[in-house]
C-alpha cells in the first residue's frame, strides 16, 4: 500500500485512515468526500473549497516527493486542483476508488508532466559533487545505517536531487513511487495507467540507471 493513504472499504467520512502517528493528511470530521464532490457538481463553490482545504496537505506531500522547491510544489498543488475541478464529473466515487486515491493519481500525473517538461527545458547542467556529498556517498557505501543528523540530511537531499535529475522522467517517477511512497507495482500501474509488466520493466531499468549514475561518482 502506498505510504500515508490507506483506503478503508467501509464508507466513513473521507475513507482514509492515516497509517502513522503523524497528523492526519485528511480531515475526516466533516461530510464525506463523495458528498462534497456531488455538492460541487451541483454548483456549490464552498464544497470545492472544502475539498481543497481537506486535501491540499496530501497533494503537497505527494508533490514534495518529486520536487523540493516550494514554488514547484505550489505549482503542482494549483495545477492538480484545477485538473480535479474539471475532472470531477468523471469521478465515480464509491463505484470506483476513493477520492484520495483518485486525487493521488491526478497529482502524480501532474508531477510527471512537470518532470517531463523540466527534462525538455533543463534549467541547468548538473554540477559535480561537492566534497560533503562525496563523503556522504562513501559513508553510505561503507556503513549501512549511519547516524543521520540534520546536516547529513541536507547533504543527502542536495545530492539526491543532483543525481535524480540525471534520470529520465519515467525512471524518476517509478523510483519515487516505489521507494519514496512505498507503492506496490500494482498500485503504480493503477496510478500511472501503465501495465504491471511495464512498471516492472521500468523499475528494473530505473534501478540500473541509478546504479550507473552512482557508480560514476564512486
Amino acid at each position: 500500500m502506498c505510504r500515508a493513504v490507506t483506503v478503508n472499504e467501509v464508507d466513513d467520512k473521507s475513507k482514509v485512515v492515516p497509517t502513522t502517528n503523524s497528523p492526519p493528511l485528511h480531515d475526516t470530521t466533516e461530510s464525506s468526500d463523495d458528498a462534497l464532490v456531488a455538492a460541487t457538481l451541483d454548483g456549490d463553490e464552498t464544497a470545492f473549497e472544502q475539498l481543497f482545504e481537506r486535501h491540499r496537505r496530501f497533494v503537497a506531500h505527494t508533490a514534495g516527493r518529486f520536487f523540493r522547491r516550494r514554488e514547484q510544489i505550489e505549482e503542482i498543488i494549483q495545477e492538480t486542483f484545477t485538473k480535479v475541478y474539471f475532472a470531477l464529473p468523471s469521478y465515480r466515487g464509491a463505484e470506483g476508488r476513493s477520492f484520495p486515491a483518485w486525487l493521488r493519481r491526478i497529482a502524480v500525473n501532474t508531477a510527471y508532466d512537470e518532470l517531463r517538461r523540466m527534462q525538455r527545458h533543463p534549467e541547468s547542467l548538473v554540477s559535480e559533487l561537492t566534497e560533503d556529498e562525496t563523503r556522504w556517498l562513501d559513508a553510505q557505501m561503507h556503513e549501512s545505517s549511519g547516524v543521520k543528523d540534520a546536516e547529513a540530511n541536507v547533504i543527502a537531499r542536495d545530492l539526491a536531487n543532483k543525481l535524480l535529475d540525471r534520470l529520465d522522467a519515467d525512471d524518476r517517477l517509478v523510483l519515487t513511487l516505489l521507494d519514496g511512497e512505498d507503492c506496490s507495482t500494482a498500485e503504480i500501474a493503477r496510478i500511472t495507467g501503465w501495465s504491471i509488466a511495464k512498471v516492472k520493466v521500468r523499475a528494473h531499468r530505473a534501478r540500473k540507471s541509478l546504479r550507473r549514475v552512482l557508480q560514476k561518482f564512486m
Binding site: R65, R68, E74, I77, A160, N161, D179
Partner: peptide, 27 residues
Amino acid sequence: AQLDHIGRELVRAASANREDLEAAHSA
C-alpha cells in the same frame, strides 16, 4: 545491492523538507 540501498536512501532524501511542504500548502 549496496548501490540499490544508496539509491533508495537518496530517493527518500530527495523529498522536500517539512517546512517547505507546510509553506507550500499554506501559501
